[in-house]
Write a protein that binds this DNA or RNA. Structure first.
Lengths: 203, 203
DNA sequence: CTCCTTCCCTAACAAGTGTTTGGTAGGTTA
DNA sequence: TAACCTACCAAACACTTGTTAGGGAAGGAG
């Protein structure tokens, strides 16, 4: 009597990988079964629909993400440190849930209208609020520039981070922490050369 | 005897809009027909397959994009001016071909393996080369920082620009030129406050 | 041994898919 | 007038889709 949840997680990982590579709608349930080494109908012993698999993948990822974000936001750091911590946490999440993040990026737009996936819209709103608060308090405290549209800045930071899931490969040249450091350096200081940059790359 | 190509372009625009909103695979040919005000079978008088529509949309967009990029690259500008011109051209392209760009972003990954869409892979390669050359010569000339991984910088710039297609709406608050200016300001100088930024926002 | 549970297979289902075929209303040309 | 072309409709086609029902092999429990 093996522990069932293990097999379940195995299958979900396979499904996530295929969803991320082919897109949710383009992925047939038979293809997931092929990749997992069983037949299409057998998947329905573990899950009650293709949509349930997607649901479980996405909500699992979001739960994980929020537990990390909430920890950062509750730490009471300064705006700049909060931004750094959020970005770093995001890249760690991409490292762990690469497929789920890619799916979220691709399909979230068309899914959030569906009642079952309403939590995607809520999550996006919570995310936006958290980021806007951080950016605004950073502008007030003198950490960030004040001549930029805050909402534009938010989208800029958000997108630059999360699109990375489309090309990032775990175990590649850069660790999530190093990728985060370089991204933060670009987002905060820009790519143009200024006198400081010669050796100010704070470690 | 009205000019046929006009109707053709009309239908392609409708199709592009639906593809962008729902995703290519999730879009049924009947839904396109609905949105265009005719029946599914009638589409096959104008196009010989659903795939052909997608092909025409994407290659049309890429042709347009390259004609603009080539003009910029042939102008012999300095690295920083080239980067600024490329980014501005990109946002103008997003303004004109928003739906096509969104489709390209979403589906290009799964399409480029298909022989018919091989030109997508070629285009991506040409784009990467053009950008890398610009970034490298900018690092050599002292315009850009040298302590960043060039390929990472490339992906950073590329992504930040093109993802904008997922939220940008023509006729919104910001014109493509103004959006480009703000993005360039963030990419080049960063979002962190430095002494200069109080009033150095050139113009 | 028998019973039961877990996990999978075989085989089929109804619904929806992209596409084709034949026809036709209405305008243009001769 | 008749012949023709454009742009569409109506109806069906073969196929794929997600999903279900019934059965069976393997192994632990009594």
């Amino acid at each position: 009597m093996r522990p069932a949840p293990e097999r379940r997680r195995e299958l979900l990982e396979v499904a996530a990988e295929v969803f991320a590579a082919q897109g949710y709608d383009a992925t047939t349930v038979r293809r997931i079964a092929d990749a997992a080494g069983l037949l299409a109908g057998s998947l329905y012993y573990h899950f009650d629909s293709k949509e349930s698999m997607l649901d479980e993948i996405l909500s699992g990822f979001l739960d994980d993400l929020w537990s990390r974000y909430d920890a950062v936001l509750a730490a009471g750091l300064g705006p700049r440190e909060t931004l750094e911590a959020l970005v770093t946490a995001s890249f760690r999440e991409i490292d762990r849930h690469r497929a789920a993040v890619a799916i979220y990026q691709k399909e979230s737009g068309q899914l959030r209208d569906q009642p079952r996936f309403g939590y995607l819209a809520e999550a996006q709103l919570r995310l936006e609020r958290a980021w806007l608060r951080t950016l605004e308090s950073g502008a007030a405290s003198g950490d960030f520039r004040t001549d930029l549209d805050v909402r534009l800045t938010y989208r800029f930071v958000r997108d630059t981070v999360w699109v990375a899931a489309s090309w990032y490969r775990p175990g590649g040249r850069h660790s999530p922490e190093e990728t985060a450091r370089q991204y933060l350096s670009m987002v905060l200081d820009g790519v143009a050369l200024r006198d400081r940059h010669r050796r100010t790359n704070k470690e």
